[in-house]
Write a protein that binds this DNA or RNA. Structure first.
Length: 317
DNA sequence: CTGATTTGACCCGT
DNA sequence: ACGGGTCAAATCAG
């Protein structure tokens, strides 16, 4: 299923790291081409480890590119993503202010609705509430951007397991990221209708999979969805994809909630999908392509980090 | 100790 | 009154 970039509006901040990011993204595209060749040259089963490893490296590259873009955007703000409680005094008044700002107690109109098998999206979210919803089997989880306090980012999202398919999460986004967590890549891609520019932020496996009838795959660099399956939660912190290295996302840290402890068995890729690939048998040339250590530490990505692109639906409101 | 999550309470619209 | 969204003290975890 195609993953289509949506909703990312933008305030693309021209960044000094933009060129490096572009280079990284270009590298990612090169690897995509290699992957294509690999797929075409060897009739590998879809779940072959090398294929996944390559895809993972592509993802890694994109992540780094996004990180670079972010670094160029606002270097000062991301250093303090910690909790900053507001003074208890005046809570009531602030609530009133919130109500007024939002046009009432109701949430603003959603900007985007997505369905995915993981609620991970590459952004750094902080859970602020959970509510049982009437006539719904699953609670709704409330998240806001972790940079709300620092950057005044108003992005929020609601995550709820689908009624029809519990392995799916319905994620409703409200507002746009105006913080350092926002990916300039998405903004640039959205703002600029230059095709070549756009292509820099799209990994297109279409030609590689055309023979098998799969549609072109678009990688939403603004919302990087990735499997967050069995990775042990070494940290409870949510993360932006560019910073992350395969840890659980912020919506999956709860020890009690199926949604957060995730992915639920049905939500996780099958073993075949998240094939273990500690030492993918890549060809030397291929490895050369994949030697991106110049861009920083590049411990090989865990299979758990693989995006399962087939598991994502995006809907633009 | 720091920072994220939990969860009951509060607020607002219907 | 009820449902949904948010707040914030308490709690948990690294």
């Amino acid at each position: 299923m195609a993953l289509i970039a949506t909703g990312a509006t933008a305030t693309a901040a021209a960044s000094p790291a933009a060129s490096m990011a572009s280079e990284l993204m270009a590298q990612g595209r090169e690897s995509a081409a290699v992957l294509e060749a690999l797929l075409q040259g060897t009739s590998l089963p879809p779940a072959h480890g090398a294929v996944h490893a390559l895809a993972a490296e592509i993802l890694r590259c994109c992540d780094r590119a996004l990180a670079a873009m972010r670094a160029g955007g606002e270097a000062e703000s991301s250093s303090s993503a910690g909790m900053k409680r507001k003074p208890a005094a005046g809570a009531a008044t602030s609530r009133k202010r919130r109500a007024i700002a939002n046009g009432g107690g109701a949430a603003p109109a959603p900007t985007r609705v997505e369905k995915a098998r993981t609620s991970e999206d590459g952004f750094l979210w902080r859970k602020y509430g959970q509510k049982e919803i009437k006539n719904s089997k699953h609670p709704r989880l409330y998240y806001r951007c972790s940079y709300k306090e620092d950057d005044g980012c108003t992005a929020t999202r609601h995550v709820q397991q689908s009624e029809d398919d519990p392995s799916l999460y319905v994620i409703t986004y409200f507002g746009d990221h105006t913080c350092s967590c926002q990916t300039a890549a998405a903004s640039a891609a959205m703002d600029d209708d230059d095709d070549e520019n756009l292509q820099r932020f799209v990994i297109n496996f279409g030609s590689a999979t055309a023979s098998s009838g799969s549609p072109p795959l678009l990688y939403d660099d603004g919302d990087v969805w990735r499997e967050a399956a069995a990775t042990p939660p070494s940290s409870r912190q949510s993360r932006c994809s560019p910073e992350g290295d395969g840890q659980e996302s912020g919506v999956k840290m709860s020890k009690e909630e199926p949604v957060d402890s995730c992915p639920a068995p049905s939500a996780v890729s099958s073993p075949a999908d998240a094939v273990s690939c500690a030492s993918p048998a890549l060809e030397p040339d291929l490895l050369g392509f994949l030697n991106w250590d110049d861009f920083g530490d590049s411990s090989f990505i865990d299979a758990d980090e693989f995006i399962n692109f087939d598991e994502i639906d995006l809907f633009q409101i």
